[in-house]
Nucleic acid binder design. Structure first.
Lengths: 140, 140
DNA sequence: CTATGCGCTCTCAAAAAGAGACCAGCACTA
DNA sequence: TAGTGCTGGTCTCTTTTTGAGAGCGCATAG
């Protein structure tokens, strides 16, 4: 798109954005690999499940009981996506009713570190966010 | 915190999960304030816009040009949510066609720190994620 | 008097998420 | 032998979210 001119000011403006694009100049953000990865992490249930599995491996039913307000459909689907992206390992044990255990891979544990920092930030600041919302809603 | 039975094993298992719930014992995750905050951060476009605004303030049209594959509707809506949650400040300048500038608040800059660490992780590891996907799709 | 830029808002179609029924297999119970 | 429950799912249907794009009020340019 504007890939031509770029005085140094614009280059500077775009540096962090370009990291998000992961240095693919012609691509738009829809194709961006970094956002692609972020989308996998950022799902509605993904962070919660990753945090759960960071504690220890869980079985399907255990996860369902641990996160009571997830539907089976979304639990299956989210675990499947996490497995596909390499964060989660799925192992089937041939017990009487076959049981399935989910655990974090090394990649998943690696990703958990910055993810959990963001969660900790959220824990520390959710009061401020709530207050900001209250102020905003009051004046609106 | 949830003050009932719990052998230490279960307490240990749930510690990180409970942080995600932010210590509200009776609540399910749908009401969890931490996930509430995470949802605001984790939108499809939110991280990208926060990263852009971490560079410098932008005007509406500039953001639209910077992120070509966002629809106007989602840009308006995402900025509105970011403003409501206190991450973004919106200032209208009474110029001839009135222009609107968006900038990060202190809260937004604070949130940007862990968010950007996650983005940097994604930049470093998106190759591994892609490889994991290829392996998974090949065997499936 | 058209034409364009600005910052939206509205409508409508498509995609994603949620609720919950259903399923096959095995064990235990009556 | 039929009934019940537990396992990890899939299938269908409804609701919510997202995306594409037209329209709008205002103002300046030509």
């Amino acid at each position: 798109m504007q890939g031509t001119s770029m005085d140094s000011k614009i280059v500077n403006l775009k540096s962090k954005i370009e990291i998000y694009k992961a240095m693919t100049p012609g691509a738009n953000f829809g194709d961006c690999p970094v956002r692609d990865v972020m989308q996998g992490i950022n799902g509605k249930w993904s962070p919660l499940l990753v945090i759960a599995l960071a504690e220890k491996p869980y079985r399907f039913g255990e996860l369902r009981r641990l996160v009571p307000d997830i539907s089976q459909r979304m639990l299956t689907q989210t675990l499947h996506e996490l497995q596909r992206d390499g964060y989660v390992h799925r192992e089937v044990f041939p017990t009487k009713p076959p049981s399935v255990e989910y655990s974090l891979t090394d990649l998943g544990r690696s990703m958990f570190v910055p993810l959990y920092q963001l969660v900790q930030w959220a824990e520390l600041h959710h009061g401020m966010v709530r207050e900001a919302r209250a102020v905003f809603d009051a004046q609106a």
